[in-house]
Design a protein around this nucleic acid. Structure first.
Lengths: 189, 189
DNA sequence: CTCAAAGTATACCGATCGGTTTCTTTTGTC
DNA sequence: GACAAAAGAAACCGATCGGTATACTTTGAG
């Protein structure tokens, strides 16, 4: 059994290329070339490019949430702190050289229809992120955890867009300051 | 002189198709078919598809800002009010049936490189939006208008993404409530 | 009316698209 | 060592891509 199965190999290269160049702009030929596998192998593991895209988005969701949550919890030791260190974790992400925005926002741009399978996965990812925040908010004992989660989530989305489109790499720090206001208010009530 | 020149005709149809289906997914053949012009006419007016995309983004910037500012100022009679009716104008936009997110966020997803001409136009559009907010903030006499403008802009970006990716059509209303907090604080100091 | 500019229609270009097929080689298992 | 599954290499498919060329028609200004 290889350290990385062919399937995982393909997905990992697809991840990189789709993220950097977009989905429609990246051909399967390019992916197999980078991954060093034959076209037949790709189509042995995936019925179509669409299916590969779906698998890639699912993998990205898994990797991204694991990473961002790990960093958030490394930087903050209790749930209340983590509501804010989540923004520090995003700040770190924005500083990465390969940063190209949120892959799910990007995918939603190319697969705009709400009922597109890709778009559905994107919405699901955003829901899971918000669920994590709400969980921490509940543990922190704030008054309306779901409401606070929606607010902080909106701030994160805004910071991501500002960092990517406008190149404002400090957007997460401003968003964090703004978030602190709402965390404070949610704890006060 | 026709009511709509061929050039404007092409751009208006390109606007619709690029917005709905994306840039790489929309071929020139499709555009000329919808616009009812020949391929030669398109290439008489634009050197390449890339140039058409740039012209389309510039037109979108002009139309969008005109519309959103007009609505904002129709709903709010003084600068302080307009800092919040800007969110109502966005709310109206989100309710439109053809709403597919922000065309500039979408374009930045497909043209991810910071120095891509398309990406530069997107950043410029965002700067102009923020400039408008800052202008209103200055007129309203807040303490740090540029800072408030960045904050409100971030809230708007977040609301747009939430509305498009997650289909939360009320995101602008929540963003407006959040914005009110910062407007109040900027007026108090 | 004239004449050039601008438009249409259509065929065409090489390249690439997503996807299939054929045949050979490698690989892991009993 | 035998054998089936998996992978590789490469040709091939029809369709579409962005863009050009040709030949004919419309149109608007002097």
């Amino acid at each position: 059994m290889p350290a990385l199965s062919k399937r995982e190999l393909i997905v990992s290269h697809a991840l990189h290329l789709f993220y950097r160049d977009g989905f429609n702009a990246t051909g399967v030929e390019r992916i197999i070339k980078e991954a060093g596998v034959s076209k037949k192998t790709l189509y042995n593991h995936f019925r179509s490019k669409d299916e590969l895209i779906l698998a890639t988005l699912r993998k990205r969701d898994e990797l991204f949430r694991n990473n961002i949550i790990r960093e958030t919890e490394r930087l903050g030791s209790d749930p209340q702190e983590r509501l804010l260190t989540l923004f520090d974790a995003h700040h770190q992400w924005f500083q990465e050289k390969e940063f190209s925005g949120c892959m799910f926002i990007n995918a939603s741009a190319e697969f705009s229809a709400q009922d597109d399978p890709c778009h559905i996965i994107c919405a699901e990812h955003k829901r899971l992120m918000r669920d994590y925040i709400r969980g921490q908010a509940e543990l922190a004992g704030v008054s309306h955890p779901a409401r606070l989660a929606s607010q902080l989530n909106l701030l994160l989305e805004g910071a991501i867009v500002d960092a990517h489109v406008s190149g404002n790499k400090d957007s997460a720090l401003m968003a964090k300051e703004m978030a602190a206001v709402f965390v404070e208010r949610a704890l006060a009530n």
